[in-house]
Amino acid sequence: QWKVGDKCSAIWSEDGCIYPATIASIDFKRETCVVVYTGYGNREEQNLSDLLSPICE
């Protein structure tokens, strides 16, 4: 189960590419979260089910 502060990978809606991110907040009722893309600072809402394991850098 994901928690705030977890590192993950998420698909950015603008280009469909996968980027490393950190979970900033979680809404368990809606099963969504807000991620912050590492190195970019962009925030975006994602479905918890769409999150991927962190990418090894």
Score class of each variant (00 low, 15 high):
Y37D: 00
P54A: 08
P54W: 10
Q46N: 04
Q1M: 13
K3H: 13
T38Y: 10
P54Q: 05
Y19T: 02
S9W: 15
D50F: 10
L52T: 01
A24S: 07
F28L: 11
Q46G: 05
C8S: 00
G41S: 07
E45N: 03
K3F: 13
C17W: 02
K7T: 10
E45F: 07
G5T: 03
P20F: 12
K29L: 12
N42A: 13
T32G: 05
G5E: 08
E31P: 02
S25R: 06
I23N: 02
S9E: 09
R30N: 12
E57A: 15
C17H: 15
G39Y: 14
P20W: 12
G39L: 12
W12L: 04
S49H: 08
Y37S: 00
E14P: 04
Q46T: 05
V36G: 00
C17P: 01
R30M: 10
W2K: 14
V35Y: 06
S25Q: 06
E45G: 04
S9Q: 12
T22I: 14
L52H: 01
E31D: 10
V36H: 01
I55D: 13
K29Q: 13
C17R: 15
D50A: 11
L51V: 01
S49E: 09
F28P: 11
L52P: 03
P20G: 08
E14K: 15
Q1T: 08
G16Y: 07
G39A: 10
F28T: 11
K3W: 13
D6F: 09
V34C: 03
E31R: 14
L52V: 03
L48P: 02
Y40Q: 06
V4G: 11
I26D: 02
I18R: 12
S13R: 09
S53G: 11
E45R: 09
S49Y: 09
W2V: 14
P20C: 15
P54H: 07
E31F: 12
E14C: 11
I26Y: 00
S9H: 12
A24I: 15
S25V: 10
A10K: 05
I26C: 03
V35L: 06
G41Y: 05
L52A: 02
I55L: 14
A24Q: 10
K7F: 11
L51P: 04
L51W: 05
I23S: 04
I11E: 03
D15S: 04
V35D: 01
L51C: 05
R30L: 09
A24T: 09
R30Q: 08
N47K: 14
E45Q: 11
E57D: 13
K3S: 09
A10T: 03
A21Q: 03
T38N: 05
L48G: 04
R43K: 10
E45W: 08
C17Y: 06
Y19D: 03
P54S: 06
E14M: 14
I55F: 13
E57R: 08
V35M: 06
C56P: 15
E44I: 05
N42M: 14
F28D: 08
K29V: 14
Y37N: 00
W2G: 14
D27W: 12
T22S: 04
R30V: 08
E14A: 13
W2P: 14
A10G: 00
S53I: 09
A10W: 09
P54F: 09
I26N: 05
S25L: 10
Q1D: 13
Q1Y: 12
T32F: 09
P20H: 11
G16N: 06
P20S: 11
I26H: 02
V36N: 01
G5K: 00
V4L: 00
E57W: 13
S49A: 13
D27H: 04
C33D: 00
Y19R: 01
G39V: 10
R43Y: 13
K3R: 11
E57C: 13
C56N: 14
R43A: 12
N47I: 05
K29G: 09
G5H: 02
E45S: 06
A10I: 08
P20K: 06
V36R: 01
D15W: 10
G39K: 10
L52M: 12
D50G: 05
G39W: 14
A21P: 05
D27T: 04
S9R: 15
